Simulated assay, not measured.
Amino acid sequence: MPQIFVDADACPVKDEVVKVAARHELVVTFVSNGGLRPSRDPMIRNVVVSKGADAADDWIVANAANNDIAITADVPLAARLVPLGVHVLGPTGRPFSPESIGMAVAMRDLKQHLRETGEIRGFNPGFSARDRSAFLSALDQTVRRAMKVA
Rank of each mutant, 00 (worst) to 15 (best):
P42D: 08
A73R: 09
L114K: 14
D140V: 01
D131H: 15
T142S: 01
D109E: 14
G34I: 02
P91H: 03
T72S: 01
G34K: 13
L84S: 12
G122H: 02
Q112L: 11
A79V: 07
A106R: 13
G93M: 09
V28D: 04
G93D: 09
F96T: 03
A106P: 00
A22K: 07
A62K: 13
A104W: 02
V31A: 08
V17T: 06
P95E: 09
V75R: 07
R108Q: 03
R145E: 03
V27I: 09
V48D: 06
K111G: 00
D41Q: 00
S32P: 07
F135T: 13
A56N: 01
S128K: 12
V17M: 07
F96P: 00
A106Q: 10
S39K: 09
P95T: 00
R145Y: 07
L26S: 09
V18A: 02
V75G: 02
I69R: 03
V49S: 01
A129I: 04
F135D: 13
V20A: 07
I101M: 11
V82L: 05
R145W: 09
W59K: 01
S50D: 15
A22M: 05
V82R: 10
A146C: 14
P95M: 05
P91G: 00
A65Y: 13
N66R: 14
Q141T: 12
S133R: 11
F127D: 00
G102H: 11
L139P: 04
N124M: 10
K19A: 15
L77V: 06
E99I: 01
R45W: 14
R108Y: 09
G122N: 13
L36T: 06
A106K: 08
D74C: 03
D131R: 13
R121V: 06
W59S: 05
N63S: 10
P91T: 12
P76N: 11
I69K: 08
V20P: 05
S100P: 03
S97I: 10
I101E: 08
E25R: 15
V27Y: 06
F30K: 04
P76M: 02
R132C: 06
A146F: 00
V31N: 09
R108I: 08
G34T: 08
A22S: 14
F96H: 15
N33R: 15
E116Q: 10
A146V: 01
A56D: 10
V49N: 00
E25M: 03
V88H: 08
D54M: 11
A129P: 12
F135C: 02
E116F: 03
A138R: 04
R23Q: 13
E99K: 10
P76K: 12
N33K: 15
F123Y: 14
R132A: 14
